[in-house]
């Protein structure tokens, strides 16, 4: 996946990876050394909290926790790779795109996800996909070693 991404990056363009909290930020951080091993250097890193941009505040639960967005570089002009763990309805990505646009104007935004599980409710597709499953009626659970000590993807029927 990192190879695929690095091949797509136009030369001379500043590169940034931005992960959607939580888990997307951990995946984004892991992507940096992988991109370096494919010759992409000086990659900026940021993490994004999209709670304030969601369209489903009333439905998400008793209280969505607002975390800080930590993007301390100017996104303008960057080739920005947005990273999330699971792509499902597309609503988080819609929120993330709005959040990034409010910070500035990247040259390009691409979407990389670990799992694409189908079930889209918005016309949003990933540019880079780790695993594709057709699990619209199943439950996909991603665990990362940063969180639970173990890297695994479970699909429960």
């Amino acid at each position: 996946m990192a190879q695929e991404i690095s091949a797509a990056i136009p030369p001379g363009c500043p590169v940034a990876v931005v992960g959607i909290r939580r888990r997307g930020d951990e995946l984004a951080r892991r992507l940096i050394p992988l991109l370096e091993s494919h010759g992409v250097h000086g990659v900026a890193y940021g993490s994004l909290d999209i709670t304030l941009y969601r369209d489903d505040l009333a439905e998400i639960g008793p209280a969505a926790v607002v975390r800080t967005t930590e993007i301390d570089f100017d996104v303008a002009g960057h080739y920005l790779i947005l990273v999330d763990d699971v792509l499902y309805t597309g609503r988080s990505i819609r929120a993330a795109l709005d959040a990034i646009m409010d910070l500035g104007r990247p040259k390009v935004i691409r979407l990389a996800v670990l799992v694409d599980r189908g079930g889209r409710e918005l016309p949003i597709q990933a540019d880079f996909v780790g695993v594709k499953t057709d699990s619209d009626h199943e439950h996909v659970r991603v665990s990362l070693r940063e969180g639970s000590g173990e890297d695994r993807v479970d699909v429960d029927a």
Partner: peptide, 17 residues
Amino acid sequence: MSGPTNPVLDAKRLVAE
């Protein structure tokens, strides 16, 4: 888990967790 999952309930469960 059995039966179709409801994304809203899933989200609520995750937040509750």
